[in-house]
């Protein structure tokens, strides 16, 4: 599903975020990226999502080599992956429902199909009752669940989550992790960067530990 070969990323300020990373993630796997803050977890996720480009090395996603893809082809790649951000990146001038509809509108679903799918996704994360609310009225945990609903609504084969529980209480965090497990069981490949020890120790997935831009284990 995902392959990285000798991937390095140096930011323009000279900081080496990733050094010589080689990593293989199989279809259907669940992988936890762990490590201290600044170890390169977020950078790795951004590289896989083609939000940033590596300084050197090659990255494959879904058998496509990202470096060789045309810029215009990247949106279609992203439609096959769900992205969950620590800061949610919700649109605050749109209702919960409209936020979840956005990826489907972009993919060109008709009104009717899109609404059916969006309801199903909101139901999965337990937000169906709040579909008419605006994100500002949601709690932190609910906002994160909304972000997850938006990520999974187009039923992507790959789900990338960058610190999804970073700002949440333990109780909410467990909730969210359970949701990811459910998606994993349904066959979605999942990559989560986290330092939530409970989730890591649950033994649900492979652990990739990063330290100063290198894979330790």
């Amino acid at each position: 599903m995902i392959g990285l070969e000798k991937v390095s990323k140096r930011y323009p300020n000279g900081h080496d975020a990733l050094k010589d990373i080689t990593l293989e993630i199989e279809t259907g796997e669940m992988v936890f990226l762990t490590g201290h803050s600044g170890a390169g977890k977020s950078t790795l996720i951004k590289l896989i999502a083609a939000i940033e480009r590596p300084t050197s090395g090659t990255i494959y996603v879904n058998n496509h080599q990202l470096g060789k893809m045309r810029r215009a082809a990247i949106p279609y790649l992203r439609r096959n992956m769900g992205l969950v951000f620590q800061d949610h990146k919700l649109l605050f001038d749109r209702s919960v429902m409209q936020n979840v509809l956005l990826p489907l509108e972009i993919a060109g679903f008709t009104h009717h199909d899109a609404h059916a799918r969006a309801r199903a996704a909101l139901d999965k994360v337990g937000l169906l009752a709040r579909e008419k609310a605006y994100p500002i009225a949601l709690s932190g945990g609910e906002q994160q669940r909304l972000c997850i609903a938006r990520a999974v609504v187009s039923r992507p084969a790959l789900l990338l989550a960058d610190e999804p529980t970073g700002n949440l209480d333990n109780e909410y965090a467990t909730d969210i992790m359970l949701m990811f497990k459910a998606f994993h069981q349904a066959g979605t490949t999942i990559v989560i960067s986290t330092h939530d020890q409970a989730a890591i120790k649950s033994g649900a997935g492979r652990i990739v530990h990063l330290d100063h831009g290198k894979i330790i284990s």
Partner: peptide, 16 residues
């Protein structure tokens, strides 16, 4: 701005 950025991240083409 936010809308454009988010749309891009979830697969919107430039044309869209």
């Amino acid at each position: 701005h936010a809308e454009i950025e988010v749309s891009r991240l979830i697969g919107a083409t430039d044309r869209y």
